[in-house]
C-alpha cells in the first residue's frame, strides 16, 4: 500500500517534471521560431516586392504574395538588362578569387602554424592590421596601380584585387585549425619517409576540410558582394558584376524597385546555396582560436 503510494507520488513528480520540460522546450522553440522569422522576414519582403505589379511597388501591403502577383519584374530583369552577363562575370571572378585566395592562405597559414621563424608574431599582427584600413582609403592608389598594369575591365585585375583582400581572415581561420591538428601525425609520416610537402598535402590538408570550406565561403561571399573596388576597376557595362548592375537600376532620382528586388533575390540564391552547402562545416571550421581540451 505505502509502496504503491510512493511510486504514485514519484510518478506524479516525474509527470510534473516532464510537463515542465515540455513547456521549457516549447518556449525555446517559440523563441527560436521568432528569431528565425526576424531573420528571414526581410528576404520574404523582397520576394513580395519583386512579385508586385509595376504600379504598386511601394505600398503598405504586408501580404507576402501580393494581390495580382506577377513575374513581370523577373522577366524584365532578364530581358531588359544584361543580368546574365553580370551574373556570369560575378561567378567567374568569385570562383577564381576563392580558389586563389584559399590556396595562397593554406600555405601561408601552414607556415604560421608549424614553423617558428623571426617575424611570425609581427606578421600575424600586420594581418590583423590590414583589417583596420578604412574602406575606400586604398581605392585611389589601387585604381592608379590597376591602371598602370593595364588591368582595367579585366577579370584578372578583379581577381588580383579580391584574392588578397580576404587573405588575412583566411590565414587566421586556417592557422587556428592547423593548430588543432596534432603534430605527431605529420611527424609519423615524416619518419615513414614522406616529404614535408607530402605530410602537408596528404595529412594536414584533408584533415582541414572544414576550415578550408569556411575560408572558401568567406572568400566567396566577400568577392560576390563586393562593390567599391568593382566600381573602380570595371567601367565597361558588359564586364559589370551583379553589384554594379544592380545599382544600374538606380537612376538619378528613380529606382526601379521591382526589378531591383527581383535581381536582388536572384543573386542571393547562389550565396545562400554556398552557405547551405558549407553549413555542415560552419561550426567546426570557424576556429579563430582553438578551444583547448
Amino acid at each position: 500500500m505505502t509502496e504503491s503510494g510512493a511510486s504514485l507520488e514519484s510518478l506524479r513528480a516525474l509527470r510534473l517534471h516532464r510537463r515542465r520540460e515540455a513547456l521549457k522546450t516549447a518556449l525555446i522553440h517559440g523563441a527560436l521560431i521568432l528569431a528565425c522569422a526576424a531573420c528571414v522576414y526581410p528576404l520574404l519582403r523582397i520576394l513580395a516586392v519583386s512579385l508586385r505589379p509595376g504600379d504598386r511597388i511601394i505600398s503598405t501591403d504586408l501580404a507576402l504574395i501580393p494581390q495580382g502577383a506577377t513575374w513581370a519584374s523577373y522577366v524584365k530583369v532578364f530581358t531588359e538588362t544584361n543580368f546574365l552577363f553580370w551574373l556570369w562575370n560575378s561567378l567567374v571572378i568569385t570562383v577564381a578569387t576563392s580558389v586563389a585566395g584559399v590556396a595562397l592562405a593554406s600555405t601561408a597559414a601552414y607556415a604560421f602554424s608549424r614553423f617558428k621563424f623571426p617575424g611570425a608574431k609581427l606578421g600575424l599582427s600586420l594581418l590583423l592590421g590590414t583589417q583596420m584600413l578604412p574602406a575606400g582609403m586604398l581605392l585611389l592608389p589601387l585604381f592608379l596601380m590597376i591602371m598602370r598594369l593595364r588591368l582595367m575591365n579585366t577579370y584578372l585585375g578583379m581577381v588580383i584585387a579580391y584574392s588578397v583582400s580576404s587573405l588575412p581572415f583566411s590565414i587566421w581561420i586556417l592557422k587556428g585549425y592547423y593548430d588543432t591538428i596534432p603534430r605527431s601525425l605529420e611527424e609519423a609520416a615524416l619518419v615513414d619517409g614522406t616529404s614535408v610537402f607530402g605530410a602537408f598535402y596528404r595529412i594536414v590538408l584533408p584533415l582541414s576540410t572544414p576550415a578550408l570550406a569556411i575560408a572558401f565561403l568567406f572568400n566567396f561571399t566577400q568577392a560576390w558582394n563586393e562593390y567599391l573596388v568593382a566600381r573602380v576597376i570595371l567601367t565597361d557595362s558588359f564586364k559589370y558584376t551583379w553589384t554594379l548592375g544592380l545599382f544600374d537600376l538606380q537612376g538619378q532620382y528613380l529606382t526601379q524597385w521591382g526589378m531591383f528586388a527581383a535581381a536582388s533575390l536572384l543573386v542571393t540564391i547562389p550565396v545562400m546555396g554556398v552557405f547551405l552547402y558549407s553549413s555542415k562545416w560552419l561550426l567546426t571550421g570557424m576556429t579563430l582560436g582553438g578551444v583547448k581540451g
Binding site: M147, T235, Q250
Partner: peptide, 25 residues
Amino acid sequence: IVRNHYQTEDLRQQFLTASIAGSPP
C-alpha cells in the same frame, strides 16, 4: 559607342578618379 551608367554621386567620383588616372570617358 560605349554607354556606361552611373548614379549621380558615383559619376562625379569616377570621372574625377578616371581623369586623374588619365583614362576619362
